[in-house]
Amino acid sequence: MKIVCRCEDITEEDIIKTIDEYGCETLAELKQLLRLGMGYCQGRTCLILAAKILARKTGKTLDEIMPSFRPPVVPVEIGLIGGEDGE
């Protein structure tokens, strides 16, 4: 059993099964269905691995599959970013 997403505990089998069952063609669909890449590291380690699996299964290239990042790129504390005055 190969773990692909450590933050959300998702294995290679989970991904392959989901691609087959739902006919996924994009990382976005795997995110929706499995929470892939939505853990603390925001997919920094797992998205490229999952993209390779998708490429293999769908015949698409990695460029077609790789995602855009949603900032903040690193987690930030609410108190730090919000400050005291909202200015």
């Binding site: 939505m38 925001q42 949603r70 903040p72 987690p75 609410i78 108190g79 970013i81 919000g82």
Partner: peptide, 21 residues
């Protein structure tokens, strides 16, 4: 920034929580 500020006002314990996305 604005959402973080308002969250901190509504629920102060959240100030130490990190925003991921």
């Amino acid at each position: 920034k604005y959402m973080a500020y308002m969250l901190g006002k509504y629920a102060p314990p959240l100030k130490h929580v990190s925003i991921l996305r």
